[in-house]
Simulated scan of single mutants.
Amino acid sequence: TPIETNEISVYVPIGSEAWQLVLDLTGLQTSINLTGWTATPDPTNERILFKPNTGHATLTPEQGITVQLNKLRINRQVGTAPVTIELKWRTPGTTNWRTEQQTLSIGKFPAGFYLRNLKADPPHYIENGDSVTLTWERSTIGSETYHLLYENTEIDVTKYSTLPVHDIRRNTMLYLRGRIQQGTGTAERTINTYITVNKPDLEVGTLHVNQTTSLAGPVLALKATWVNQSLPYSGWVKATAPTDGILTVTMVKNSEVKIKIGTNEAVTVRSMYNSGTWDHSYASFPVPQGSEMAIERVRQGDSAREFPEFLWYAFGDGQGLTFRQ
């Protein structure tokens, strides 16, 4: 959707402190890639104001805006200065102007500081569980600190310019952060490299499958708990799932049970008699944590010692189940 804009402001902190960027706007040279726009330095409000000569201009989603500020007189105090870009815009056909801002943190580093060329060997693509060796170039003018960050790991690498990273099992972005402080001012630079893992381990919060899913390899659950010993010979018994899990039942000949999970209707599971033999039917029920499971053994089987077998597979802590009537 196109938008209309009547001004773009670039706010530049003026002064000699660590958190300020420029001494003044003297000698500033500006440019913008949009035709028919004029830039006006506004030292009083510490900004450079860009305005279209026609009062307002229309921007399409495909358009990018490039603003350049050249010949800035940067102050020499080490620190980080906030540069804010502000856009006033409205939807075509409306009258109210809206304001959106984006702030960039601009570091001012002392002469001789550098951090560059973060590389991985092997480069970028590895097998699951492999290692990489990182190398980089950095300055050592005296007060720098360097840290490697990835996933939930942070390693102080101030004294190094190479480091092995072992057992990488998922696609990983590695960041190298350099920081230097002088007086009360701090400046920071971060570079990164990305490692792609063939057949990576995956960790997801919720997985929705709308079509058929094929699993290559075993499906692992935690230890199964045999729950038959807590079931009476008749009547309903109930238990609350301590974790997410799966309740399974394997039938014996001429047996029948009813199973109810949460607020769902009870399901009847019975062994089937086919072509002169009993089919030891099997059923499984996914159970969310906190849901109530209810079981009734309607018919236990031909033998007094034959019972349908119930197993509980818990995903997480809390294996056991306590059934109550």
Rank of each mutant, 00 (worst) to 15 (best):
P13D: 01
Y114F: 03
Q77P: 04
E292M: 11
W226V: 14
Q77F: 00
T277I: 04
E100Y: 01
L231N: 01
Q68H: 02
G316R: 00
T213F: 11
K51A: 15
S143M: 09
R169W: 04
R116L: 10
T196K: 00
N228S: 11
R299Y: 06
A294Q: 06
R179M: 15
T26M: 12
H208Y: 13
P218I: 11
T1L: 06
K71C: 10
A283P: 00
F109E: 06
P122Q: 08
R116S: 15
K238Q: 09
I85G: 05
G235K: 05
Q300E: 15
Y175L: 14
T213H: 09
K108I: 15
Y175P: 05
I261E: 06
V252G: 11
T263L: 10
I126K: 04
N45R: 11
R47P: 01
V298T: 14
V197Y: 01
E127R: 13
L222A: 09
S255N: 10
F310M: 10
E265S: 12
M251K: 06
G276D: 03
T190D: 02
G320C: 02
G15Y: 08
N210I: 12
V287W: 07
G64H: 02
G142A: 10
N192G: 09
V287M: 13
E46L: 12
M272S: 14
L23H: 02
